[in-house]
């Protein structure tokens, strides 16, 4: 029994049609992105200058306005956020991958919860931060510490997922090799698994922070100051951040502020892109081929 080797006309046509559809979707996304970037750059490039990065914002003279306090505030927030998520996130990832017995219901419950937490809207975290950190049990007040921790809670699931993947990517043979030499489980994790997973974990940390850096809603809820005439310096300082500043400028009616907002967006985007670039570089450079 010998069938024809030539493909049917209709199936060929379907193939081509499908390909065209996919290309269309892709180009739509790319065009939107390009238009957005070009529009922002065109709007904001005039507002960019060295003094823009250091000056405090002014509502009277937009030309003298700057994002100094916003950048400083963002840095402080990120510091708190990183100091919180790195130990907690890595420890959780290691526990879930190395110790948790998946046949126990509470371990499965934790896993499901972490996945769900990643999908919770960020405003909810803001309310959580307000209720538990700013007021409520901890009563930290409207300070950087509370804001950083709120952002940390928000991105913790991201880091845990990335950390688990990094730990899981270390092949079991490494653990076996280490244990077979008489190393304890803790020595194996600390001296073999974590060093081998470090590039993946570092990538996860950067991606988590880059998610946190662009957040606005939870900060507003925990009481970020949109018009900061001070440079925050410390965990107890009042909260301000780059996206908050941009948000403030965008809501101003004057066109000068539109330029400032666009310039702020350019700065924020540059920070984000460079963080992501570092993450990609880390991954490519230290990724271990097993």
């Amino acid at each position: 029994m010998r069938g024809s080797l030539t493909a049917g006309r209709s199936s060929r046509r379907l193939e081509i049609g499908f390909k065209a559809l996919l290309l269309l979707a892709l180009s739509l996304a790319l065009i939107t992105l390009t238009v957005l970037i070009v529009d922002i750059v065109a709007d904001g490039v005039g507002g960019l200058s060295l003094s823009f990065l250091t000056d405090v914002p002014s509502q009277i003279i937009p030309e003298n306005s700057g994002i100094g306090p916003a950048i400083s505030g963002t840095l402080w927030l990120m510091l708190v956020c990183a100091a919180f998520i790195i130990p907690v996130g890595v420890a959780t990832a290691v526990y879930l991958e190395e110790y948790a017995d998946r046949s126990r219901w509470f371990n499965r419950a934790i896993e499901v919860n972490i996945q769900n937490l990643a999908a919770v809207p960020s405003i909810v975290y803001g309310i959580l931060g307000l209720a538990f950190l700013v007021r409520g049990p901890l009563s930290l007040g409207n300070v950087v510490l509370a804001g950083g921790l709120t952002l940390g809670l928000l991105v913790l699931p991201v880091l845990i997922v990335a950390g688990r993947e990094a730990v899981r990517a270390v092949p079991p043979s490494i653990r076996e090799g280490s244990m077979a030499l008489g190393a304890t489980k803790w020595q194996t994790i600390w001296k073999q698994v974590l060093p081998a997973a470090l590039p993946g974990i570092a990538t996860g940390v950067i991606l988590s922070l880059s998610r946190a850096i662009g957040e606005t809603a939870p900060l507003i809820v925990v009481g970020a100051v949109s018009f900061a005439t001070f440079i925050p310096s410390g965990f107890g300082a009042e909260i301000t951040a780059l996206p908050i500043q941009i948000f403030d400028w965008v809501s101003q009616p004057q066109p000068e502020f539109k330029t400032l907002a666009a310039a702020g967006i350019i700065v924020l985007m540059l920070i984000l892109l460079s963080m992501n670039a570092v993450a990609v570089w880390l991954r490519n450079k230290f990724e271990q081929k097993w």
Binding site: P171, S173, I174, E176, G177, S178, A180, L181, Q192, P195, A196, Q288
Partner: peptide, 12 residues
Amino acid sequence: GMVFQKPNPFPK
């Protein structure tokens, strides 16, 4: 001690 099926040097 034990030696495994696939060589498993540590990434060091």
